[in-house]
Design a protein around this nucleic acid. Structure first.
Length: 790
DNA sequence: TACGTGACGGTTGAC
DNA sequence: CAGTCAACCGTCACG
């Protein structure tokens, strides 16, 4: 094959086989690295990742390999000569100061963090299991995943010199930090580790916190990436655990309430899987699942901890179940997981287990962010600091080490938290939405389905499972999607695609209407801030492209933006914010308000409690309508409106239409549902849903209208029509599939968030700020001007 | 077809 | 301040 690299006139700029511009010798932008990891966590194959992100296979492989081996996706230290033997760094080394420091910090961390009721063994077990699952996903083909895991632990153990339960994340920190050659780095590395610890225990680990402050910017950057990784892992872990603990509940609830309506396959699969699973409930300690369990218990819902949920969807079911159980706030349930995820993130430094465990101080971890960005608007709700972009943990604002020109998406808030499998659990639970691919997501799979199934190890996702069992339309298009990948998908990264919004949406608009996968504009593929010459891109625009969908989930009183590209979903939301929302919901639960009572009746499907989570809108494509405030979204968040049906407004979706020009109402004037929503936003949360079970791969993309015929077809699954048509008014259905989330065509929304898609390159900063101001959906912008500087 | 790996040309930054 | 050089980068080609 002829090398595709073409030196560009700009000098040093090359175009890879996917048409993506890259700078030879420069690391991949951090956000791409994160995405690679996230996708991998979701079970996306490396080859597909490379296509989606338009990075070479080798690059993906290297990054994943690196992560596998070192636990870090951070670029290595580039440049520089070997430090002199006399440098402080060296002195600190080969003397072992670093190890000592780390050990001290870690001890401090655990002392402050670990709940007394939880034994180290328990934590270790949980972490181990989660990690195992994680590695299985990351390195599916490698039977040595466990080996990796073990090896990592071994390293950590050796390094730590104690038996403290350490999750891979923490280990990751270690390995990563060790890579840093400089003495200052060495310190920072330690601080980095400590830093993470401090996140989780701001109050307890004061010393650690202090140390953290001294962390060099570079180290901070590294930390953030590491945090992302850790967070992903934590979430995966949390999800895994939570699923285990929650499934039984959901099942029981569903069974009770839904009787026949409940999908038998799910139940059977669950039970069978649960039998297979030996996961100790203890492992869930500190996990969202536990929290959920408590919550459920509080509600009088019996929880069988012994049973192990096999699918995230099952977990989601729990949410739905919970909502069915008359819980005033479904969101509350989700809230738990969210907060937990938050813990996980905060625990990044020292392991997910510890982080998740520490429920009492879920938000403390924000301190670091607060330090970085100063007090956030969220701080009132929780002591969390958000950076100026609204990202708490994932500070994409820091310059990418890689292609400076690449602009991280402003929207991108690809909150890893949400993107990760765990994230799905956390983020979607409230709605009972089907999870994003979860490493351990067996929900969709037949009972017999397990990790060793026909699907590749990586492909543990529900979609994969279902694929085998049910001809998924979604899968059907997999081939097509691959083709599509040639043209850069917008993947999760709205960010990068912003300037591409300019691309005529005609095609995608059509797709929206037809519910066929909408190909993102080829231009979207452009990663770099520079507009990539489409002509240069060898990518041939496939007629059929992976749909780029944007959904909005009403979580509590807030909107959550869910972006899905094919089977990948991202929640554009700062998880800390999610946590905050969740906490609020929890508070509300604690002190029921008149509003809460609205959802008490499970039979009243239509009755919507504003506190409950719901997907408000979905959009195929990059959705130029992102500019929406929560109020706006609610306005267009009527009952689920299918994109193709009531809400679909190709034109509205068209990037050509300035976001400002289209208001939700304007876009969907015909949608009575929206109108209803506007009138009483709180009303559409009911759970009646039509849930196309087969559509599970993109469950939340499927929208059902509780009592209406309007059904939201999964855009990504064109053939779902039949499924979608299957309307189940019984809320039980929702609980079954967690499809309760009502999704409304995003067309309804005019979102400022994404509007900048086309303008991102130039307005990134503005857009970001505007987003924050205009809505609480702060999408963590992924980019900082710094990256540009490079 | 998917994946892992090495060579290649390039960038970076400490020395 | 410029040159050197080691380390790393992403991409490609190969197996």
């Amino acid at each position: 094959m002829v090398p595709f690299i073409n030196l560009n006139a700009t000098g040093g700029r090359n175009i890879n086989q996917y048409g993506r511009e890259f700078t030879n010798g420069r690391p991949l932008p951090d956000h791409l690295r994160v995405q690679i990891l996230q996708l991998a966590l979701q079970g996306v194959r490396p080859c597909e990742i490379s296509r989606q992100l338009q990075v070479s296979h080798g690059c993906v492989s290297k990054i994943l390999n690196r992560y596998r081996k070192t636990g870090s996706i951070n670029p290595g230290q580039i440049g520089g000569s070997k430090p002199k033997v006399t440098t402080p760094d060296v002195v600190n080394k080969l003397t072992g100061c670093d190890e000592i420091e780390e050990s001290i910090l870690q001890r401090a961390y655990y002392i402050g963090q670990l709940p007394t009721q939880l034994s180290a063994e328990t934590l270790s077990t949980a972490a181990s299991m989660a990690q195992s699952a994680f590695y299985n996903v990351i390195s599916p083909h490698s039977a040595s995943s466990s080996i990796y895991n073990n090896s990592v632990h071994s390293q950590a153990d050796l390094k730590n010199g104690d038996n403290k339960p350490i999750t891979s994340p923490s280990l990751t920190m270690h390995t990563s930090s060790q890579r840093r050659p400089k003495s200052s780095d060495g310190v920072s590395d330690n601080t980095s580790t400590s830093h993470h610890a401090s996140d989780s225990c701001n109050s307890k680990g004061g010393s650690v916190e202090t140390t953290h402050k001294s962390t060099p910017s570079l180290s901070t950057k590294s930390e953030r990436l590491q945090d992302v990784i850790t967070h992903l892992f934590n979430q995966a872990s949390a999800t895994y655990s939570s699923v285990q603990s929650t499934l039984p509940t959901s099942l029981s609830s569903v069974t009770e309430k839904n009787s026949g309506l409940c999908d038998k396959s799910d139940s059977s699969s669950v039970s069978s899987l649960s039998k297979k699973s030996d996961m100790p409930t203890a492992s869930t300690s500190g996990n969202p699942s536990v929290l959920i369990s408590h919550s459920l218990t509080h509600k009088g819902v019996s929880i069988a901890n012994s049973e192990i949920p096999n699918s995230s969807s099952s977990a989601e079911n729990v949410l739905g179940t919970r909502s069915n159980t008359n819980s005033p706030l479904r969101g509350a349930v989700s809230a738990k997981p969210v907060s937990n995820s938050d813990h996980g993130r905060s625990s990044s430094s020292k392991g997910s287990a510890s982080g998740s465990i520490k429920s009492p101080e879920p938000l403390s971890g924000a301190n670091r962010a607060a330090n970085v960005a100063g007090p956030s608007k969220m701080s009132s709700a929780m002591p969390i600091g958000f950076d100026k972009f609204g990202a708490v943990y994932y500070d994409y604002s820091l310059p990418d080490r890689g292609l400076g020109q690449t602009r991280p998406s402003r929207n991108v808030t690809i909150s890893p938290s949400c993107m990760s499998p765990a994230a799905s659990a956390v983020c979607f639970y409230p709605n009972g939405l089907p999870s994003i691919k979860t490493p351990v997501d067996f929900s969709a799979c037949s009972p017999s389905l397990d990790s060793s199934g026909a699907a590749t190890p990586l492909d543990l996702s529900a979609s994969a499972c279902k694929e085998s069992a049910v001809p998924s339309p979604h899968r059907k298009s997999s081939k097509a999607s691959e083709k599509l990948t040639e043209v850069r998908r917008n993947t999760p990264v709205l960010d990068e695609s912003l300037d591409e919004v300019k691309t005529p949406l005609s095609s995608r608009s059509v797709s929206v209407v037809t519910s066929t996968p909408t190909p993102p504009p080829a231009s979207l593929a452009t990663v770099s801030g520079e507009k990539q010459d489409v002509s240069q891109s060898k990518a041939t625009v496939p007629t059929l492209k992976t749909p780029y969908e944007r959904h909005f989930l009403i979580f509590g009183d807030n909107e959550l933006e869910i972006i899905s590209v094919g089977k990948n979903k991202w929640i554009v939301r700062n998880e800390l914010e999610l946590c905050r929302i969740a906490k609020e919901e929890v508070k509300k639960l604690g002190s029921p308000s008149p509003e809460e009572s609205c959802s008490k009746s499970s039979t009243d499907k239509r009755h919507f409690c504003k506190h409950s989570a719901k997907v408000v809108c979905s959009n195929t494509d990059s959705c130029s309508h992102l500019n929406h405030s929560s109020g706006d979204s609610s306005a267009c968040s009527g009952f689920k409106c299918s994109q193709s049906s009531c809400c679909s407004s190709p034109k509205s979706a068209s990037p050509q239409n300035p976001p400002t020009a289209t208001s939700p109402k304007d876009q969907k004037p015909a949608c009575s549902n929206h109108k209803r929503a506007n009138d009483s936003p709180g009303e559409f949360n009911s759970i009646a849903a039509k849930v196309p079970r087969s559509s599970s791969p993109l469950p939340y993309s499927v929208t059902a209208s509780p009592k209406t015929n309007s059904v939201c077809n999964d855009i990504s699954t064109p053939s779902n029509g039949a499924d979608a048509s299957t309307t189940v008014e019984d809320s039980s259905v929702l609980s079954t599939q967690s499809k309760s989330a009502s999704i409304v065509s995003n067309d309804c929304l005019s979102a400022t968030n994404s509007s900048p898609l086309g303008e991102e390159e130039t307005r990134q900063g503005e857009a970001v700020s505007s987003c924050e101001e205009s809505t609480e959906m702060a999408v963590a912008p992924v980019l900082s001007s710094d990256s540009e500087g490079s």
